[in-house]
């Protein structure tokens, strides 16, 4: 073996080869982004956008840093590895930014104000970040509070009707009757039944999130293999222990399916609650901006909303991966 290595200095040859791929990917990604910068800076805008220059500088800086990361892999291997992995996406994004720039701001192919160029959206963030942030926080609070209350309530209901026949007798029919009702159909009642539109919105979101969690927790608890209970009982586990050490962990995979469905339902309820009720939040901001035909604001808010939704889903996946690490073959998000 050592002879072969001596004849073919494979180690260095390999690292040169990978070093070259990293450098080439970095340069290609950098050039694509520099192209986007040139497209923004080199021609005059057709419209009246204030951030074109800053946008061009920003995109250019990104392009340069991709090139630097690709070339300095020897000293910063993690940065280079990232550029290599993200390379194809970065190149595609750079080209899309270039095309978008030309089509929206320079050649007039895209009708304005419906499809603003990237600097139009950047402008929203730089000029209205305070307002956007306050709406974002409003949405986040509504979602977090409603989702947490709803899922905790749904979980407790699910466990109790899955466990106790008496609880099942009383709660199950109610759940079957009210649960499938779209939470938003209760709008007219909810907003005068609750003291504030905020608490009413929380109720709507909690209701939307609670139902799937309750149903899936319930079916999870009810379908636990009875052999688990037999084993636990012969080992001296008491009834309360049977709930916490057997029923709940066994039902947890089901509970998480319920939580993912609950998150989707909570997003929809959030939008409705914001539009009809609290008159604040990203959903409200989008509607309001559309009324003023400020489509750049709509896009800017949509991007924030996507970040909020995707971020919550990612967080939920992280929690699930930790709690259910004992399962095999988990889907990675």
């Amino acid at each position: 073996m050592s002879d072969v290595t001596a004849l073919h200095p494979g180690d260095t040859g390999l690292s040169v080869a990978t070093g070259r791929t990293e450098a080439l990917t970095g340069i290609a990604a950098g050039l694509a982004w520099l192209l986007a910068a040139v497209a923004a800076a080199a021609f005059d805008d057709l419209g009246d956008w204030l951030e074109t220059q800053n946008y061009a500088i920003g995109v250019g800086v990104f392009g340069l840093s991709f090139i630097v990361l690709g070339l300095t892999g020897r000293w910063f291997p993690r940065g280079a590895a990232w550029v290599t992995r993200a390379g194809p996406w970065l190149i595609a994004l750079g080209l899309v930014l270039t095309l978008w720039q030309l089509a929206a701001a320079k050649l007039g192919w895209l009708p304005q104000p419906f499809f603003p160029p990237p600097q139009g959206i950047l402008e929203v963030y730089t000029f209205e970040y305070e307002e956007l942030a306050s709406h974002f926080l409003a949405s986040f609070r509504l979602l977090a509070v409603g989702f947490v209350i709803g899922t905790i309530a749904g979980f407790l209901v699910g466990v109790s009707i899955g466990w106790s026949h008496k609880a099942g007798y009383w709660v199950h029919p109610v759940l079957r009757f009210i649960g499938p009702l779209p939470a938003t159909s209760l709008l007219p009642i909810v907003f005068f039944a609750f003291p504030s539109s905020w608490s009413a919105s929380i109720f709507l979101i909690a209701l939307a999130a609670g139902f799937p969690v309750a149903v899936l927790t319930w079916s999870g608890v009810a379908n636990v293999n009875t052999a688990y209970y037999d084993v636990a009982r012969t080992l001296g586990v008491k009834p309360l222990g049977l709930i916490f050490k057997v029923a709940i962990p066994a039902a947890l995979p089901n509970v998480f399916i319920g939580l993912f469905m609950a998150l989707g339902a909570a997003f929809s309820a959030l939008m409705v609650a914001e539009l009809v009720g609290v008159k604040a939040g990203i959903g409200f901001y989008i509607q309001w901006s559309q009324g003023w035909a400020s489509y750049a604001n709509v896009y800017a808010a949509l991007i924030l909303l996507a970040l909020l939704c995707s971020g919550s889903i990612t967080l939920l996946f992280r929690i699930r991966d930790r709690l259910l690490s004992w399962q095999k073959g988990l889907v990675k998000w």
Binding site: Y228, V231, R233, L235
Partner: peptide, 21 residues
């Protein structure tokens, strides 16, 4: 009258709790 840890069973199926090491 009920199960007690002085009488433990090894069942036909091992029935280990999959969420426990």
């Amino acid at each position: 009258t009920g199960p007690h840890p002085s009488r433990v069973v090894v069942f036909q199926d091992p029935t280990l709790f999959p969420w426990r090491t």
